[in-house]
């Protein structure tokens, strides 16, 4: 139960949602866009998120879209993660999202909610970073499109009053060889330690990481080293570690040293599956 009350709105269009945000902001309600709402409810219960109004995006058709159109897969931000388990048009997304939280929670957690949340992990963004996807964002200045690799830096860089509407992924990436490995400290259901997602395109492997730093990331510099065929897999991995962003997480789920150890073995496993011959 939340310790405070708020207004609840469920607009039926993008314009209505954006207009509502501006109105509620002017009324000093500190509005928040609400999709699955699990993080808002969880943090709200602890008084770590406080708002006077939530704007539920699940009534907006564009946010619920899931279609292949003009060789692009269009995915609405308010779709629940289990949508991708039931409709496997993008197998890497299915593989990654089905490791987030648990089955019942995934009926509530949405794609946009996971990507725009505050938790470290936000694994749902990894497949989109690997596939050079594009995001559609709505806000007071209208609708804009941006390459996710240009706008996702630690978090999705949204301006005040903006929200994520859709993500578009080119069809050519959907069936590319891929792997997503999630490591936990304990069992199959414990909290995450690290997740590494990988996708092979044009004989190069792309890598994206979650749980290693306080944010998910993909690094072109690290990818270049990991694909350097003049080096052994072991040397590629150890060299790439010099370019990892900081800080490496060091918490009750795992020390930074343990995370690095797990990362090394995970990358080795990914090479054995996707890497082909080692020189």
């Amino acid at each position: 139960m939340l310790s405070y009350n708020f207004d609840y709105y469920q607009p039926k269009s993008i314009d209505e949602a954006v207009g509502l945000y501006q109105t509620l902001k002017a009324e000093e309600k500190k509005p928040i866009y609400y999709s699955g709402g699990t993080e808002i409810i969880t943090l709200g219960r602890l008084n770590l998120v406080k708002t006077g109004a939530v704007i539920d995006l699940k009534g907006i058709p564009e946010c619920m879209e899931y279609t292949l159109h003009n060789h692009q897969l269009i995915i609405g931000s308010a779709l629940s993660l289990n949508t991708f388990e039931e409709n496997r048009l993008f197998p890497l997304l299915t593989l990654t999202s089905k490791e987030i939280a648990d089955y019942t929670s995934r009926n509530k957690i949405t794609l946009g909610g996971n990507i725009c949340g505050q938790i470290f992990y936000r694994e749902a963004v990894l497949p989109f970073l690997l596939t050079d996807s594009y995001v559609t964002i709505a806000g007071p200045n209208g609708i804009r499109k941006a390459a996710i690799n240009e706008i996702f830096y630690c978090t999705l860089q949204l301006e005040e009053g903006e929200f994520l509407v859709q993500i578009a992924t080119e069809e050519k990436f959907l069936m590319a060889p891929h792997l997503s490995v999630k490591k936990r400290k304990q069992w199959d259901t414990g909290y995450p330690l690290i997740t590494v997602a990988a996708l092979k395109k044009d004989e190069e492997i792309r890598f994206a990481f979650s749980g290693l730093c306080p944010y998910p990331f993909r690094s072109k510099q690290i990818e270049t080293i990991l694909n350097n065929q003049d080096l052994s897999y072991k040397d590629r991995i150890s060299t790439s570690f010099q370019y990892l962003p900081k800080p490496i997480l060091n918490d009750t789920e795992g020390s930074s040293g343990y995370r690095m150890f797990v990362l090394e073995t995970t990358l080795t496993n990914i090479f054995s599956v996707l890497g082909g011959e080692e020189k």
Partner: peptide
């Protein structure tokens, strides 16, 4: 017909 955690759902939803 879907399982949901009622602590993570607003009644208005």
């Amino acid at each position: 017909k879907r399982p949901m955690k009622s602590c993570m759902l607003l009644a208005v939803e």
